[in-house]
Design a binder for these strands. Structure first.
Lengths: 138, 138
DNA sequence: CGGTATCCGTCGTGATACTG
DNA sequence: CAGTATCACGACGGATACCG
């Protein structure tokens, strides 16, 4: 699979951004972009989506082991939010001991494309950012 | 201009995500994806980048008018952070009254592609999320 | 015009303990 | 195993006032 983002033609890129800014209201507080970030911008959502996207489904403690450092509380909280947003499906099996499986919904899967875009940019430009920070600090 | 994200082939998509998760350490706290989000995940950075991407350059108060709702303090703080990360250039002209222009660096421009990806996803799926929320609440 | 300085409320997050 | 409940802290962001 390859993810292609067309080489940005500076001028047209600005046009696209203008259209985005015109949309409903970015001047106001309700911008679609802010909406996504309010969803995945917290500390754990993205890592959870990444992990669920990599496996068909994961149980609570499997997920907890993979997302090292997350507390039980925050895993629960974050999963509930993702479930509420329709990004994650939660299936409880009536067994003892209890088994709960989490998987991405179609909506959740559609987000992974965006996440990969973010990741590609991040890995490509993290060095440049680090350099900029060093320059700015010095 | 068109931005194309290849239609996700479920299986290969999972492969890509696995590779991402293997990278240095997502288990630990230092994930490149988290890095980007720590940068643009705050309340105002994205809107500022969007606006600077749409215009060649903008002065402080021009920017302030466009990003309605932002306080003077937060505009300053956010711009300083973006400058430190090498995403925004700040030019001070020695005039009276003072004139300060902000513009995206090349690094900053490279981010707009990602931002547009985010926006496209957002505008496309916001209704689905709203529906999910309603379902979950009810 | 383009900032800084200070104060203060709120929210996200973590630690800990307990439960069906 | 997969949670919930409670508390407590720290960072983020807003309001206000002042400055070169």
């Amino acid at each position: 699979m390859n993810i292609t983002i067309a080489d940005p033609q500076p001028h047209t890129m600005a046009q696209v951004l203008k259209e985005i800014l015109l949309f409903p209201a970015n001047g106001a507080g309700i911008c679609p972009v802010r909406d996504v970030l309010d969803r995945i911008g917290d500390k754990w959502s993205l890592l959870i989506i990444l992990n669920l996207g990599a496996e068909e489904n994961l149980r609570f403690n499997e997920l907890r082991r993979r997302v090292a450092g997350i507390s039980q509380r925050m895993l629960t909280v974050t999963l509930r939010n993702l479930e509420a947003d329709g990004l994650v499906d939660r299936t409880v099996y009536a067994e003892v001991p209890p088994r709960v499986e989490y998987r991405l919904t179609d909506l959740g899967h559609s987000l992974t494309g965006v996440v990969i875009g973010l990741t590609n940019w991040a890995t490509a430009h993290t060095p440049a950012i680090a350099a900029a920070r060093a320059r700015f600090a010095g």
